[in-house]
Design a protein around this nucleic acid. Structure first.
Lengths: 249, 249
DNA sequence: CGAGACGTTGAACCTATTCAACACTGGTGG
DNA sequence: CCACCAGTGTTGAATAGGTTCAACGTCTCG
């Protein structure tokens, strides 16, 4: 039975009102950064942010652009890419509501090393690095949290490096799908849906392989009943079975 | 001509007096963290550190150990490893005098994700994460610097991931050697000596390949006159030629 | 001097890429 | 409304790059 249902992924375009001032405060207060901060301080911080609405496919910034802003995802999904000279890319992360990216301070590199592109239409909050640096200066607790989050990201990057070097493609794809499921999964009748439009190319760029190989592995997983997938969507139907694939053959 | 001179790498064991109290202050003031801080504050911070001398090969900590200390390299070289279940490891970094590793705050993961091992005998300064967190709290400028340094490390990790995915072994090894030369290079008659004992296994673990392949590539580079190497040492005799190898065949 | 770690080289093998052809899907414009 | 087309996904076969296994050489240190 090869009938592929239409994509169950929610592709509804973000409405303008989703970026309302109310949502802004809510998003900011949900951020690991700002949780626990007095409402007044939050209000002040909120004023420094501007909001930007984009359509899917648009670039927030490209590698090489001057790095002078920090971004927070209010609604939608953003993908962070790294380009190789040979044309092959790596998809570093898929960010969702509440996560930040870009430049935190003015101390770092002068230009972005990676590219940020909208995976779906989205609403972003943005602040000048300069302004955010002042906020960090005024609230040392926030800086400590930022350090902790960045430490985690370093560990994640190292983990992925290890996987690419030490594990076969099949296992890497299994890990990638599980991570996506954990982060972006939505419970459904058919299983755990990865709730973002995701092509074979995207998956390949996450697992460090080619779209053809990603397709092959996915086909095999599908015929084993571990995942269900179609055009631009993937659902994990058997999480345990997929976890087993991360260890052996 | 295959005569290999004895290793030109300085393998002198760190003497106890290298870890003297004088050196401690000097090392700390050289740290990106603490540069520009008033001498008095530095003195206070210095008191929170303890010093530890280790012999080459010893482990500072292993993956899984409770993460509760931050370390600073006073003298010697430390390698940071990540272990794969299959036995294959990745050498994440080779730290030298002035660099830090370990756990900066108590907010992060409860245990280390990587392993720190001495590449040479070394002297380390160490502070409890708890105490360091207080220092960061008291000096927001330090926290900002820490954030910048971590952002750079994230970029570095992503860069390496990209290389492993997109570039052939030869180019990865060339990049690795150039990075090592830039960081640990010492000018010599025969060229730029990578001033740390480095086996083929180490090089392989840095470039994400096997010792056999590393040896083969190195042999080829040697017969082209680009590098000179022996047991546990490598020198770059022609930096420009090596840089060319990072782009093409 | 002997033993063990380190390094080199060869040959077979295998995994994943590459190249290519084809199928399906969804949206656009005639 | 249908036909078309570009984007997306699938599958096959050939290829190549690197690993693996193995044997041997060399250096260092006790």
């Amino acid at each position: 039975m090869k009938s592929r249902r239409k994509s169950p992924v929610n592709t509804v375009t973000t409405e303008p009102q989703h970026c309302s001032i109310d949502l802004r405060l809510k998003i900011l207060s949900r951020l690991p950064f700002f949780s626990g901060l007095p409402a007044q301080a939050l209000q002040q911080i909120n004023q420094r942010f501007i909001e930007i609405g984009y359509e899917a496919g648009n670039f927030v910034y490209r590698a090489g652009d001057p790095a002078e802003r920090l971004y927070v995802v209010a609604d939608g999904k953003v993908k962070i890419l790294q380009h190789a000279p040979g044309g092959r890319d790596v998809l570093l992360d898929l960010l969702t509501s509440g996560e930040f990216f870009g430049s935190l301070t003015t101390l770092g590199a002068a230009s972005y090393a990676d590219t940020a592109q909208l995976q779906t239409s989205a609403c972003l909050l943005s602040i000048r690095s300069e302004d955010f640096q002042q906020i960090l200066d005024a609230h040392p607790t926030l800086a400590l949290k930022a350090i902790a989050i960045m430490a985690e990201r370093i560990n994640l990057a190292n983990q992925r490096l290890l996987q690419v070097v030490a594990l076969p493609v099949e296992q890497r794809i299994a890990f990638t799908l599980l991570a996506l499921g954990k982060k972006l999964g939505r419970r459904q009748e058919n299983g755990l849906l990865i709730d973002v439009p995701l092509s074979r190319d995207d998956l390949a760029e996450m697992a460090g392989t080619t779209p053809e190989t990603a397709s092959r592995v996915l086909s095999q997983l599908q015929s084993s009943g571990v995942v269900d997938s179609g055009r631009q969507w993937i659902a994990i139907t058997d999480v345990d079975a997929l976890e087993q694939r991360t260890t052996q053959s």
